[in-house]
Each structure stands twice: as C-alpha cells, then as structure tokens.
Design a protein around this nucleic acid. Structure first.
Length: 567
DNA sequence: CACGACGAAA
DNA sequence: AGGAGTTCGTCGTG
C-alpha cells in the first residue's frame, strides 16, 4: 500500500490543486487532472492547477460525475480533502444541467427547478429578458436574448444547456471524395470521425454547437469539412488570415465534390458570397469609424447559413463574440489546437460557441504517430558580460527586453545548429533587432513581416527542397500557415508568457518525420531574470498536454563554474 | 483601371 | 504590458 505522503496531489480549499511532479504517480494523475482543471503556475517540480466553474462544466458536459471526481481526488491526495473544496465541487457540478433552454411553439423557454429559478429572480440582468412566467414554472424569453442570456447566466455561475435547436439553413450538395484531385486516397482517421460525430449527434438538438480541440497537424480543416459534409448545409467559415482563407478553399476543392463556383472568398477585393463562403475575422471587425456599425456584419445574414465554422477559435476577437450572440439559432463549430485565451474570454467561447466536445491530447496523437514526437528543452544562459551592468540599472520594462536579447544566446544557437546539422531548423524570435543581428552573424536568411509574399514563397520553397536548412523567422511564425514544417526549432524570445504562442511554435514541428519520427524544440532564456518566469508560464499548455521540458544548463555556465572552482 | 505604397486600427 | 504582423481603405502613379 502506497504511503499517503507519496501521493502526488495537494488539494486546497480554494480549489487550487498542487501536483508534485516528483512523485511516481504524477504522470497518471496529470492525465486525469487536466480533464477538469487548468494549469496556472509552475514552480520547480510543483505544478499548480486550478479547478474553475468552467473547467468543471466542460468536464460535466463530457459526462464526468461529481462523486467520481471527488473520490479520485481523495484517493490521490496527500492530505484529507478540505470539506469546502468537496462541497464546492458538488455544488458547481450540480448546477450543470439544472437549467435548459428549449423552443416550444416558436417561443424560447427557460426551464429549471423551482429553487434555481427562484435564485435567478434576484438578478435583474436575467429577468429583464423574461416576457412571461408560464404556469409550468418555465419562463418565456425574448428570443433575441438567447446569446446574451447564456453569457450572463454563465457569468453568474449558472450554466444553461441550449436545447432550443437550430434552423436548418440552405441545403448544400457536398460529399467527401475518396480520392483527391492529386489522386491520393483520402479517408477520415478514427479520431476525426469521432470528433465529427461528437459534434453532430443525430436526433438530438443538444449537439450541433461546440468546440473541437485537435493538435496542430492533426487535420482540423478535414474535421471541419467532414462536419460540413455531415450537415449538408450552406456554411460560413471564419478564420484568422488571408492565407488560411485560401487554404480552406484549396482543401474544399481538393477533398469534396464542391465546384470552384460554389466556394466564395470574402476579403480584400473579393467579396463573394456563395453557398460556402470563407472570410477572415478581421474583415468582420472592420468599420468606417468607431461610432458606425460593423461594415460587414451583414455577412452573417446575407445567406441562410446552416453552419458557421470558427477556425482558430482561440483567436476570435471580441466584436465577433457580440455578433455571435445574435445568431444562436445557427449551428456553430469552433476549431482550435489550444483552447486557451490569455484575455479571459474563455467563458464567452463556452457560452456563445458551445462546450468543448472533443479534446485529442497531443501525446495521444503522438503515440499513434499521427504527429511527431517532440523533445522539449529549456536552456538557461547567464546574462552576457557586455550587458550585465546595463541590466542591473535598467527599468523593469527594459530589463525584460535586455534579458530576451541577451547576446550570449548566439553561442547556444551555434552549438545547437552544429548538434543538428543538416536538419531543417527554424530559429524564432520576437525582436527584429535581435533577429537581424543573428542573421548577419550566421549568414542565414531572415523572414519578417516586411519580406514580400513572393520572396517568402521562394524561401519556403528552398527550405522545403532542403537547399536551405536554417531559417530565421519573426512573429510571422505564429500564424503563417504556409511556413514549412521543420525538425528543429530554437526559440530565442517570445511574448509575455503566451501559452498559445509556445504551442503554435512547437506545432511547426509536428508533421510526422521519416525514420524515428523525432523533433526537437529548444527555448533559450536568460537565467536569473524575469524571462525565466515568463518562460515557465509559456510552457503551461504543453505541460498540460503531458510534455516535459528538460532543463539544460548551458555549456557557457559550466565553463564559468569550472573557472570559479579552479580559482 | 490596375496596382503598389502608405497610414490607421484592433 | 509591449512589439510585430496583418488587413483595410485611400491615394498616387503608370
């Protein structure tokens, strides 16, 4: 029997859970823990997770039960479960399913137990939408409030299940091809099939809106296309940038029966509205002036859409949430690799797009060889002697930048390049100055936002062909969909603790590799500065996915230490 | 009229 | 809490 002190978890009364990675069962515990908690901090071997109403409701929506969860926590905790934590979990999960929306006789109705409905009457923000109290205890609501009410109820701590249904939308003839235009066999992988089924549960009105989470390179576009084929209705696809718009169109033409004339691009000079239309979020948020309405809002109603796909739903901008609140009767599908938002809009994704319906862990995809195995390492280097003095007296703000641009990182890059010579390698950084200096020093081409599209294509082409094995890239690496895959990525600097950014960059390495299917990710941070702290925050998403960062002490440090001992 | 350059915005 | 990228509309040029 395992001793209590060997258990990996410590559960606090405020629903913060500490996971001791040093314990034997830590790996198993983490796999379960991430199903109902978010990673928030990491200090050495102790990782901090937080259970929130949202994480519990997402878990509840995929069938997790309060008693089962409590029992699991109790049996994996070093100390007795605090009563407060236990009752809080019970209460929060208990609220899931207590309220639901339906449509009867064209009326939007809110249902719930008398006790919950009574609690709601205290909230003006809720009762202002009520048109009439019906005899059976349900409330007749203003149908235009479907979205904002769900948002408000979620905010107040009352999740509501939306069974109010969807309008069908214009029919669309669309089937998947068994062979692509390039004459390759095409069929859905198992997990792609289950993701689609999860989204579209036939015969229920509950399914049909929600978020699917799949790692980079696992074929999110394919899943979206399969969902379209399943529904067979006119579809509006929203995505993050123009390149991605084009990619969606290419994939649709390649893998479905759709003709060129049926797929429209809405953006730039093209303003085509066709049975399948693809647009960027950016164009939706455009308006002539601040006081005027959004210019392209009409796109939502210009056609009778049966489905709206939100690609990269973690990037969805605030105004699009507001628009989405008004079209809750249209089926919605959110797609992403990293359902984390640094801006606190996670609740809005939950209430306006829908609950998380499918989440393929990166490590699971790796085990099935659908994506490459990535060895992650964090290399800490001391501040370079030339800037150390400057660092000490710099303001907090410039300290960050000095640490990030630490010239001592150059040597590490050179060593890593030697170590992986010949492998396609991306060096990714945040500051153009730093990147220009490095590019000059190494004699390697640099790709920034300033490089014209045509030249980018040439460089991508040479990189793909293997003529060029190293490429330095700026922040374009985060979103340029057409940037080729690599086997090695070296991160020089990145923005403030962005988990998304870290994941996107690692995503560059995930296409399966010939041979042992191995890729490497290195992140270089300056030791004993704020940068190490940000670095740890950046790693949180990957830790949730079961990745481990090896901590390497740079050879430079070793040398310095040896010198110190010698003297 | 087509196209590139430029500044503004979120 | 800041830097970089992207996209829009406009304006000037061939």
């Amino acid at each position: 029997m395992q001793k209590r002190c060997d258990k990996p978890l410590i559960v606090q009364s405020d629903l913060v859970v500490l996971l001791d990675e040093g314990k034997a069962d830590a790996g198993q515990a983490r796999e379960k823990l991430v199903l109902f908690a978010d990673a928030v901090r990491r200090a050495g071997a102790i990782h901090t997770y937080r259970i929130t109403p949202l994480t519990l409701w997402n878990a509840a929506s995929s069938g997790m039960d309060a008693e089962e969860l409590i029992a699991w926590l109790a049996s994996n905790s070093r100390y007795e479960l605090p009563l407060q934590a236990e009752s809080m979990i019970r209460r929060l999960i208990g609220r899931y399913g207590k309220l639901w929306l339906s449509t009867e006789g064209g009326k939007l109705l809110l249902h719930g137990s008398t006790s919950v409905m009574d609690e709601l009457t205290a909230h003006e923000s809720v009762i202002q939408h009520v048109k009439e109290h019906l005899d059976d205890g349900s409330w007749h609501l203003d149908e235009r409030c479907r979205g904002v009410l769900k948002q408000e109820l979620t905010r107040l701590g009352y999740p509501v299940i939306d069974r109010a249904g969807y309008h069908a939308g214009e029919e669309l003839e669309l089937s998947l091809r068994l062979r692509t235009i390039s004459d390759r066999r095409f069929e859905l992988r198992d997990y792609q099939q289950s993701a689609v089924e999860q989204f579209y549960k036939e015969g229920t009105v509950q399914g049909g809106s929600g978020v699917l989470v799949l790692p980079c390179g696992a074929g999110k576009t394919i899943v979206g296309i399969a969902a379209m084929a399943r529904l067979g209705r006119a579809t509006l696809i929203l995505t993050s940038n123009a390149t991605s718009v084009k990619q969606w169109k290419d994939e649709l033409l390649d893998k479905t029966s759709l003709q060129d004339s049926e797929v429209g691009q809405y953006g730039g000079t093209l303003k085509q509205v066709r049975p399948v239309t693809i647009a960027t979020y950016h164009i939706l948020t455009h308006r002539k002036s601040k006081s005027l309405p959004f210019t392209h809002m009409k796109l939502f109603t210009e056609r009778d859409w049966g489905l709206i796909i939100y690609d990269e739903v973690h990037l969805l901008p605030a105004p699009v949430f507001r628009m989405t609140a008004e079209i809750q009767a249209t089926r919605r599908l959110g797609l992403t690799a990293t359902l984390v938002r640094e801006d606190g809009c996670a609740e809005d994704v939950y209430s306006l797009i829908g609950p998380k319906q499918y989440d393929l862990q990166w490590k699971t995809a790796e085990a099935a060889a659908h994506i490459a195995a990535v060895a992650c390492a964090e290399i800490r280097v001391p501040m370079h002697s030339s800037t150390a003095a400057m660092y000490v007296q710099a303001s907090t703000r410039s300290k960050l930048r000095l640490a990030a641009e630490n010239p001592a990182k150059t040597q590490i890059v050179e060593q890593l390049l030697q170590q992986h010579v010949g492998k396609p390698t991306l060096i990714i950084g945040q500051y153009l100055n730093q990147l220009h200096l490095l590019a000059a020093k190494l004699g390697v081409p640099l790709l920034t936002g300033e490089v014209p599209q045509e030249e980018r294509q040439t460089l991508y082409g040479r990189f793909k062909a293997g003529e060029l094995s190293v490429l330095i890239v700026s922040k374009i690496a985060n979103f340029a969909v057409d940037l080729p895959d690599a086997a090695v990525a070296i991160q020089l600097s990145g923005s403030f603790g962005s988990r998304q950014e870290e994941a996107q960059r690692i995503g560059r390495l995930l296409r399966p590799k010939a041979g042992n299917n191995q890729a490497w990710f290195y992140t270089i941070v300056t030791d004993e500065t704020k940068e190490t702290e940000f670095g740890m925050k950046r790693q949180l998403f990957m830790l949730e996915q079961g990745y481990h960062y090896e901590r390497l002490i740079s050879p430079i440090v070793k040398d310095a230490q040896e010198e110190a001992t010698a003297q």
